[in-house]
Design a protein around this nucleic acid. Structure first.
Length: 928
RNA sequence: GGGCGCGUAGCUCAGCGGUAGAGCACCACGUUGACAUCGUGGGGGUCACAGGUUCGAUCCCUGUCGCGCCCACCA
């Protein structure tokens, strides 16, 4: 006997263990593959190996699991490929911090020892997220779990690098990159996050205070402001014209440039002015004396310098600004790198500044310029400052040697594939983002100055010549050939961008570069489920690399979901303190409730705003289902092995079987279209509002009645429908459904499979329009009686009489067939027929019949009159609207015939009802 | 600066060319043997605003306002 509550905590772990032991999640089960089952493959977006499950994972993996379970039940051979990502920067940061907590500088450990530490930590905490995914119920084939740094995947990475290098698609280049001076690595464009900064310092040369005295520049005050935030100001600097004596009061002797990073002026090698700048264009070709530096720099003409912006003259620092780099290249300017890896001023800076940290240099340069009367003004200026996505440091454009992928070449097939529809984005709008990014793609910087990751397979000879090879032996062989003798090689210390290896995920996990059966069978994969935030990072890279190396797209569909936010729509963040831990919700409400909430809230192209009340509501839903099953068990609704729904004769059974099919269609179509909210909503409404609210209530009189035949059929139908419900609900709520599937089988015939592998319901054409109409009538009648009772304050306990007047033969027959049910649900003493309603009755109209509830002494006549009039007025309003339409010649002429006809029919119904209500009103008045 | 999205009940959101919906919250009544994690009934919406298209607009178009996101720029 089922308990009266579903207790997820006690059940989930046991059920999950059963699934795993039985191999239910294994891909390629012989009975399916032999039967030629189609495949369905999803690769998990590999979570960081050291991470723990957050709400984004919960959403992402719930959706994948819903799809995988759905397709598995549809008979497909499903592979949900799991695994984890080594997450270079994130992991190295975490371990580095842990070490520094123990007063250990990771650099002192040395590379080898440090990596050992990371692997140890991975061994210790790497299983966390996997276990958490299991708690969520994820049906991954864990026997195939992969890690981006395991041997197989490393082999794939190696081959891809070597091949791309051989094809000229990977190259080493010295160019500006995004340098993180704290982490001391380059990061890709995508790993840079612009954040707005606004300063507070304001000063202008010659500006007077209230007393009329010029305000002197105060270096100490500037330092104080910059210590809080080094960014957020625009500085206007004067560069004296070369060969002209600088006269602070004569603008003809200098040029003014604006900058937000004044310290970079120490690396200026030119000033740019638009060639058509009428005001200062004449200075092009002249030279200016670069202050603080013993150098003169050229004023060049370049259209980059917008005459309308700033002063019209732009200082050019090719080594420290991406735009300046381009201008410098065009104008042939020198490149002077003034920063070291830590972001300190190096030997290329004037001696006074060497060794200063970049923001110290900023203060110093500004103060020194002010002292020379070369500072024109400083204004607070809101502008976006590039920050490292991980670690928060302000990013510095810095000149380094790095490895790049020729992304533009790889992007072309990736663009074509989506244009040709070989891969489809759902929702479609995300394809536009994908196109825009790939069409403007820059070379992809793939080297990172880290230790944790795939070390770049490049070795350098004594003269720096590069040998890219699968291993050192191969590199040596190549080197020996080149040099004609054996030479010592040193390996490139850098590792690859994590996304370089995750970009291979859909095929590297299937065994590529080996020609494995899995690769042949499951690639291209079916659906990729991921958030919009990694379309560029990951989806685009998988498309590029997948197409290049396998010749086919990595997946057919890309389903993009939104972010999980808090109830106010804010991102969940530790600093706001609004993070909801999915594990807490699972502990409190069960994994099923959380999963159902996430699917119910997932509407295409929209973020999910999570509220605990919603989770609670769906926990209640699980309880509701549980109790429906409990009711079935108590009433001996046991599955009948050879039950044939088509042979059912009881109206309620024929009706619920048709409704079950409708629900099946709605859930199936919803999932096929990735409309998770529609699919989950359909099963929710069916279970609660149709099956529990009506069917079980309608079944009660039969189940306690005298007709053994009707009882048997109703029991069998109930058991059958519950089975169908468990199947339809299983992808969303796998635990409670599986538990009920097994518990209910204690009574009936043995189950052939666990619910995981049970066949998805089909539609077999069991709709019965007559049954639908009859139950529809019944529902309306009962609802209306309840409504009137409540409105008339008829005590629940008092049984009343219902009198049908003007009923057709059909209605009379229906009333007779369902007399017990109606009496029970409407709480009636008797149900009878009469020609006219008795005096003092509350009345309402159902179709052609007027229903009277004799409530003499109970009803308030005035209230009843008001109620009937209100009904009438509502209908008359509708009739007026319809009349307006029907009186409109344009409407009759242009609206589709069926719409016009529908309006006419509605009008007939409304008018008839109004007339019956009028009759009812007349009777009431007469009796009152 | 470019692009995308959103604005519907108190809240969170569906929907959509012709009858405006759900969950939660709220109000009233109720423990009748599946379920109070429940049942029954009820209140609550000029569908942001202004134009336009249409026989008909919450829905399509344009604009305005408000909010959010992405990209670019950030002298």
């Amino acid at each position: 006997m089922l308990e009266n509550r579903y207790q997820p905590g006690a059940i989930e772990a046991r059920i999950y263990a059963q699934w795993e032991e039985s191999g239910a999640f294994r891909a390629g089960p012989p009975e399916r593959t032999k039967a030629g089952a189609p495949t369905y493959c999803v690769v998990i977006p590999p979570p960081n190996v050291t991470g723990s499950l957050h709400m984004g994972h919960a959403l992402n993996n719930t959706l994948q699991d819903v799809l995988c379970r759905f397709e598995r039940m549809r008979g497909k051979d499903v592979l949900w490929q799991p695994g984890t990502d080594h997450a270079g920067i994130a992991t190295q940061l975490v371990v580095t911090r842990q070490l520094s907590d123990r007063q250990i500088n990771y650099k002192d450990l040395g590379r080898e020892k440090f990596l050992e530490t990371v692997w140890e930590w991975k061994a210790k905490s790497g299983g966390t997220i996997v276990n958490q995914l299991k708690r969520l119920g994820c049906s991954c084939d864990w026997s195939r779990e992969r890690f981006t740094m395991d041997d197989g995947l490393s082999k794939a990475v190696l081959k891809v690098f070597v091949d791309l290098y051989a094809q000229g698609l990977i190259y080493k280049d010295k160019r500006l990159g995004n340098w993180d001076p704290e982490f001391q690595s380059v990061v890709s464009d995508l790993e840079v996050e612009p954040r707005d900064h606004t300063g507070t310092f304001k000063w202008k040369r010659g500006e007077a205070d209230k007393e009329g005295n010029p305000v002197a520049f105060d270096p100490a005050r500037l330092a104080k402001v910059l210590d809080k935030d080094p960014s957020g100001h625009m500085y206007y600097l004067r560069y004296p014209l070369a060969g002209v004596a600088y006269d602070a009061d004569d603008p003809a002797t200098y040029l003014v440039v604006g900058t937000t990073r004044p310290e970079t002026m120490l690396g200026d090698t030119g000033v740019a002015i638009h060639p058509e700048n009428e005001r200062i264009g004449h200075l092009i070709g002249k030279r200016v004396a670069l202050p603080l530096c013993d150098r003169e720099i050229l004023v060049v003409g370049d259209t980059y310098a917008d005459p309308e912006k700033g002063t019209g003259a732009v200082k050019i620092t090719p080594a420290h600004d991406f735009n300046d780099w381009e201008v410098g290249k065009r104008a042939g300017l020198d490149v002077i790198n003034i920063l070291d890896a830590r972001g300190h001023l190096n030997e290329n800076a004037p001696e006074a500044y060497r060794g200063l940290a970049r923001f110290e240099a900023r203060k110093q340069v500004v103060s020194d310029l002010a002292a020379l009367d070369l500072l024109e003004k400083i204004e607070p200026h809101t502008h976006a400052v590039p920050h490292a996505q991980r670690g928060d440091a302000i990013i510095e454009p810095w000149l380094t040697d790095q490895w790049y992928v020729d992304a533009a070449t790889l992007a072309k097939p990736a663009l074509d594939a989506v244009r040709a529809g070989k891969t489809r984005f759902v929702p479609e709008k995300y394809a536009a983002d994908y196109f825009r990014w790939l069409e403007n793609i820059q070379p992809w910087c793939i080297s990172r100055q880290l230790w944790w990751g795939h070390q770049i397979p490049a070795w350098y000879g004594p003269d720096g010549k590069v040998f890219v090879a699968h291993d050192e032996a191969e590199a040596s062989a190549a080197a020996n050939k080149t040099y004609g003798k054996s030479v010592p090689l040193t390996r490139d210390p850098d590792v690859l961008d994590t996304w370089f290896s995750s970009g291979l995920w859909p095929f590297s996990t299937l065994g590529w570069p080996d020609k494995t059966p899995e690769l042949a069978r499951y690639y291209p994969t079916s659906t990729l489920v991921t958030g919009f935030d990694i379309i560029f990072f990951w989806v685009a890279r998988m498309m590029m690399q997948g197409l290049h190396f396998t010749g086919d797209v990595p997946f057919r569909d890309v389903y993009i979901h939104g972010l999980v936010r808090d109830e106010k729509g804010r991102k969940m963040s530790k600093s706001i303190g609004n993070v909801i831990d999915p594990l807490d919700l699972i502990d409190q409400y069960g994994a099923d409730a959380l999963r159902f909430t996430l699917t119910a809230l997932t509407t295409q192209g929209r973020d999910v705003k999570l509220t605990a009340s919603r989770v609670e509501g769906y926990r209640n839903f699980a309880t509701k289902l549980w109790n429906a099953a409990r009711f079935a068990e108590m009433n001996e609704c046991v599955r009948v092995g050879d039950f044939d729904p088509a042979q059912a004769t009881e109206t309620i059974n024929r009706w619920i079987l048709g409704e079950t099919e409708r629900a099946t269609r709605a859930v199936t179509e919803g999932l096929e279209a990735y409309k998770f909210n529609e699919a989950s909503g359909a099963i929710y409404r069916f279970v609660w509002n149709v099956f529990c609210d009506w069917y079980l209530e309608l079944a009660k009189p039969i189940l306690t009645g005298d007709s053994e035949a009707a009882k048997a059929e109703t029991r069998a139908t109930t058991a059958f429908v519950i089975d169908e419900i468990l199947k339809l609900l299983h992808p969303f709520m796998p635990f409670v459904t599986e538990e009920l599937w097994q518990r209910l089988a204690e009574h009936g015939p043995r189950r052939e499979t666990s619910l995981v592998l049970a066949p998805w319901p089909t539609h077999a054409g069991r709709q019965d329009a007559a049954a639908d109409a009859e139950i529809g009538w019944l529902v309306r009648l009962v609802t209306e009686v309840r409504s009137v009772r409540a409105e008339m304050n008829v005590p629940v306990a008092s049984k009343i009489t219902l009198i049908l007047t003007g009923a057709s033969a059909e209605t009379r027959a229906r009333a007779e067939r369902h007399e017990d049910t109606i009496k029970r649900l409407a709480r009636l003493e008797t149900l009878m027929h009469a020609d006219t309603p008795p005096e003092g009755s509350a009345q309402f109209v159902i179709d052609e019949a007027t229903v009277a509830l004799p409530l003499a002494g109970i009803i308030d006549i005035a209230a009843e009159v008001a109620r009937l009039k209100r009904e009438q007025q509502k209908l008359q309003g509708e009739i007026r609207k319809i009349d307006d339409k029907l009186a409109n010649a344009q409407f009759l002429a242009r609206a589709p015939e069926e719409v016009v006809e529908e309006q006419r029919e509605r009008r007939v119904d409304f008018v008839a009802t109004v007339e019956r209500l009028s009759a009812a009103l007349a009777r009431i008045s007469a009796s009152g």
